[in-house]
Amino acid sequence: MTSWAEFEKDEPEFAATVRERFGMYKHHVLGTVRRDGAPRLSGLEADFRFEQMWLGMMPSSMKARDLLRDPRFSIFANPGEGAEMTHGDVRVSGRAIEVVDEAVKGRYAAETSAPEPFHLFRVELDEVTRTGVEGEEVVIRVWRPGAPVRTIRRGNDAASVAPAREGG
């Protein structure tokens, strides 16, 4: 797995596009794994600071309990209104690592005015995906640790896959 800082260093243009997309709206959709193994979807704010991506939540929330038990998650950036996909869809998946260092939590709380008490999770990335429409094609860009961004184009004909070192 890879931290947000490492992802930004390796793929700065793609990371900037993803971060910008999350910044367009305050609330996003978090997917976690419930105790029975079923998926749970919850609203969430994603935050970028101190070169990391953070997830903060109330300690009694079901999503926090889910992540403490099983840290796997996926966050889908709020798509906004309409179905035009003007800015594309963005999804980040990985592991949420609970922050127990009180100095880090205090620094975060001071900058964000987070209501206390709260759980703070640092994101470790397994995959970052952006899906958008370019002309007549759906273009999917996928990044995974240790590999360059891969671009998949889907049009009216068969899909094509090409590795790419491009961002955005």
Rank of each mutant, 00 (worst) to 15 (best):
R95I: 07
E98V: 11
A96G: 14
A103M: 13
F121W: 06
R122K: 15
D89F: 15
L120F: 01
R95V: 03
S113P: 11
I97K: 14
V99A: 03
P115H: 01
V123G: 10
E111H: 13
I97G: 02
A109S: 09
Y108K: 04
L120A: 01
V104T: 12
L125K: 07
V100K: 15
V100C: 13
H87M: 10
R107F: 10
P115E: 03
H87W: 10
S113Q: 13
A96L: 15
A103N: 11
A110Y: 09
A96D: 13
V100S: 11
A103Y: 14
P117Y: 01
H119E: 08
S93C: 06
R91V: 05
K105S: 07
D89A: 14
E98R: 07
P117R: 00
A114H: 04
L120P: 00
V100M: 12
A103W: 06
Y108C: 03
L125S: 06
D89L: 15
F118T: 01
S93L: 13
S93P: 11
E124H: 12
H119R: 08
A110F: 05
G88Y: 05
A96Q: 09
A110Q: 08
A96F: 07
G94K: 01
D101V: 12
S113E: 07
H119Q: 12
R91P: 05
E98N: 09
V104Q: 15
H119A: 14
V123M: 12
L125G: 02
D89N: 15
G94F: 03
Y108L: 09
L120I: 00
R107S: 09
I97V: 12
H87F: 13
V99F: 01
F118I: 00
R107I: 08
V123T: 11
P115L: 03
E124D: 08
K105W: 02
E102A: 12
L120G: 00
E124S: 11
A110K: 15
E124N: 05
F118S: 02
Y108R: 04
